[in-house]
């Protein structure tokens, strides 16, 4: 679901970025009121979970791959506003350091995965929760349904963004300048995976981690004097070590091909916007290190990414604590 650069026109990217600015502003304002400084550091752990979850690629028949996002999980634990900021930060790190998702299309990726996904998941889970009995099982079922709805809503938005490109931007020869697949291809291609395998992966990721945190008494991240709960530490370390499992899935996710690959996917040509488009050289492209086995690059990238996210949010929490963040009365 990470839209690379040059798949969307600069105009589309600008609109999506412009849409996200007020969303981020509202989220930060709401967080300033509802989340005390120390609790902001929890968002770092949540962002790290999302970052790691996105590294576990799941294969699908036909050669495409996808992954969980964990946006609904964060929304249920810390609220949708925190989820939006946490997933946005994880996406920014992925785009800048690992080249996963574009810089220009950062706004669009955030709209799909950091806004639509967690908010939809949170609303649906809340609605389902009201219908079920107040029990641990009820929490998990509603979380699973919310996660499924959330990831599919996000995927649908991404499919629409892809699909409208050939309608809006064509060159003199009549070829699409950016994503060459229209809505009639993009929507079924994206949704087939997300309604089945990737949706199930998101449900599994959300329910498994929620259940583990509930069992470990760490769901509400109890205040332990700034210490990370043991269950969270174990889970993070396990996820970092297990990330190479994501390499078992061969192939490229739909809509994430390189400019050189796209002609062979059925488009028959490389769109002009992709041929001449700007591309940022990431520090660790596709979570790999030159000359090293893929699994080492994956583990190192996972550890570095998770660590940077946690440190970033903790330092921010310290700054917010110093400036005297307002607390809702």
């Amino acid at each position: 679901m990470h839209i690379p650069d040059n798949y969307l026109s600069p105009q589309t990217c600008a609109v999506m970025g412009a849409v996200m600015v007020p969303v981020w502003t509202v989220c930060i304002r709401r967080l300033k009121v509802s989340l005390p400084g120390r609790e902001v550091s929890r968002m770092g752990v949540a962002a790290a979970f999302s970052f790691l979850g996105m590294m576990f690629n799941v294969p699908m028949p036909g050669g495409t791959t996808g992954h969980a996002v964990g946006g609904t999980l964060i929304a249920l634990v810390l609220g949708p506003y925190a989820a939006c900021i946490a997933v946005s930060t994880a996406l920014l790190l992925q785009a800048l350091l690992f080249g996963d998702g574009g810089i220009l299309s950062f706004g669009a990726n955030c709209f799909n995965m950091a806004f639509v996904l967690p908010f939809t998941g949170w609303v649906v889970a809340g609605a389902v929760r009201k219908l079920l009995k107040n029990s641990r099982r009820g929490d998990l079922i509603s979380a699973g349904i919310g996660a499924y709805a959330g990831i599919n809503a996000g995927a649908l938005c991404a499919a629409v963004e892809f699909g409208i490109q050939p309608m809006l931007f064509r060159d003199a020869a009549g070829n699409a300048m950016y994503c060459p697949y229209g809505l009639q291809v993009a929507v079924p291609a994206m949704m087939a995976g997300h309604l089945t395998v990737f949706g199930a992966a998101e449900v599994l990721f959300t329910v498994a981690i929620l259940g583990f945190l509930q069992a470990g008494g760490a769901l509400s991240f109890p205040d332990t004097g700034g210490r990370t709960p043991a269950a969270v530490k174990v889970l993070l370390t396990a996820l970092v070590v297990l990330t190479p499992l994501g390499l078992l899935a061969q192939g490229t996710a739909w809509g994430e091909w390189d400019a050189g690959e796209i002609a062979a996917t059925g488009a028959g040509y490389t769109p002009s916007g992709m041929r001449g488009g700007a591309l940022l050289q990431a520090l660790l492209p596709e979570y790999s290190l030159a000359g090293m086995p893929a699994w080492t690059g994956y583990v190192i990238s996972a550890a570095a990414g998770a660590a940077l996210l946690i440190i970033l949010f903790r330092l921010a929490a310290g700054l917010l604590g110093k400036t005297g963040i307002k607390r809702r009365v």
């Binding site: 550091s41 190192i300 570095a304 998770a306 440190i311």
Partner: peptide, 24 residues
């Protein structure tokens, strides 16, 4: 730089999981 970067990533993760005061 690969070995150094790899160990540094693990050390940063260890640092990130320290109590906040220790981390700072």
């Amino acid at each position: 730089a690969v070995f150094t970067g790899g160990v540094l990533a693990v050390l940063l993760l260890r640092t990130a999981l320290l109590p906040e005061d220790s981390m700072r």
